[in-house]
């Protein structure tokens, strides 16, 4: 990581915006397309300034047709462009599944390697904004299920910027999930150019008694829980895989072997979710080292309700993690 002097504090939203600016400036094949991304600067302000700097040809305001836009992006990517498509809400990815799952993910394999689709789809995830079930889901597990796609879930401004730059330069299709509640979260980001390779987990906190594997919005939840657990004498290691596909299996398994206890936490639905795959991985590959079954914590299997008193119950929180950790260490 960088020292104070050569880095500065910015929000996760700014980090994404910087990555877009830098990659567009360095490669004229990089273009942004989507709904409200140009003149308006994006519904979440993530593409702000791009239109003024790069113009309407490179920051393409499209009619409202998610499937068509992604198809346009796939075709452009097959003909030497590097499109970044913004899908406003992750929930809307339901509209683009054919192009993503049956076209983009399969172009390289099915063409015998003679075509590629280097497209990035940026979209959002996460509940907590009181916007109900069609704008609050975390659907990244859908895409992790498909060979040929890479799936990225940044949890800090540093990771968001470095991973997005890697995504844009990658020759395979990448689905980039941004937690909409984290856009204003701040963190240190180097002034210097950098990228973060895919498939390399980041140990966010070192510990000895228990491993918490956390993704996206759940990383900060896990870190807060680790603080509380530390006051009880429980030393928690928090690991963020950062990319679920490809997955850094070794770092996750080695940590579980070291601590002998593991919690997996992710904001997707629990049933058949990312936590199931991660728990299965740790359970099978660290089996002889574990003192207890792996605990899975995901979002409740319920359409995310609007009323805050209902919605808040569906999202895992610090207390959920602390209670699970206490159970695992038998305290």
């Amino acid at each position: 990581m960088s020292t104070q002097s050569d880095s500065r504090e910015i929000t996760l939203g700014q980090a994404i915006n910087e990555a877009l600016h830098e990659e567009m400036a360095s490669d004229s094949a990089v273009i942004v397309m989507g709904e409200d991304v140009g003149r308006h600067g994006g519904v979440f302000r993530l593409t702000e300034g791009l239109y003024d700097e790069f113009g309407s040809a490179r920051v393409l305001d499209c009619p409202i047709c998610e499937a068509g836009i992604v198809g346009l992006g796939v075709g452009a990517s097959m003909t030497d462009m590097r499109p970044i498509v913004e899908i406003m809400f992750g929930d809307f990815t339901a509209l683009v599944m054919d192009q993503v799952v049956n076209q983009a993910a399969k172009v390289h394999y099915m063409s015998g390697g003679n075509m590629t689709a280097p497209i990035v789809i940026r979209t959002t995830m996460g509940a907590g904004r009181n916007i109900a079930a069609q704008h609050s889901q975390s659907l990244h597990a859908w895409f992790c299920h498909i060979p040929g796609l890479k799936v990225v879930l940044p949890a800090t401004p540093y990771d968001a910027k470095g991973l997005l730059k890697t995504a844009i330069r990658d020759d395979s299709p990448v689905i980039f999930f941004e937690d909409k509640m984290m856009y204003t979260e701040k963190g240190m980001v180097p002034n210097e150019e950098y990228t973060i390779p895919f498939g390399v987990a980041d140990v966010k906190r070192v510990g000895d008694d228990i491993t918490v594997i956390a993704t996206s919005s759940m990383v900060s939840v896990a870190l807060k829980a680790a603080e509380t657990l530390a006051t009880e004498g429980i030393s928690t290691e928090v690991i963020d895989p950062r990319t679920l596909s490809p997955l850094d299996e070794a770092t996750l398994v080695d940590s579980a072997k070291k601590t002998s206890r593991c919690i997996v936490i992710d904001e997707g639905y629990s049933h058949f979710g990312a936590t199931a795959e991660l728990a299965s991985l740790v359970s099978s590959k660290a089996f002889y080292y574990l003192d207890a079954p792996v605990e899975r914590i995901g979002a409740m299997d319920v359409p995310v309700p609007f009323s805050p008193i209902l919605e808040d119950q569906t999202i895992p929180n610090e207390e959920t993690v602390v209670n699970a950790a206490r159970r695992l260490v038998g305290s």
Binding site: A57, I69, G71, G75, A76, M78, T79, Q103
Partner: peptide, 23 residues
Amino acid sequence: IGYISHLPQSMPVTLGAAFSFKY
């Protein structure tokens, strides 16, 4: 561009190629 199964999904993809040419 080889046949894209699931007609008419070749239409938006073809537009992507057209976009690249125009760009």
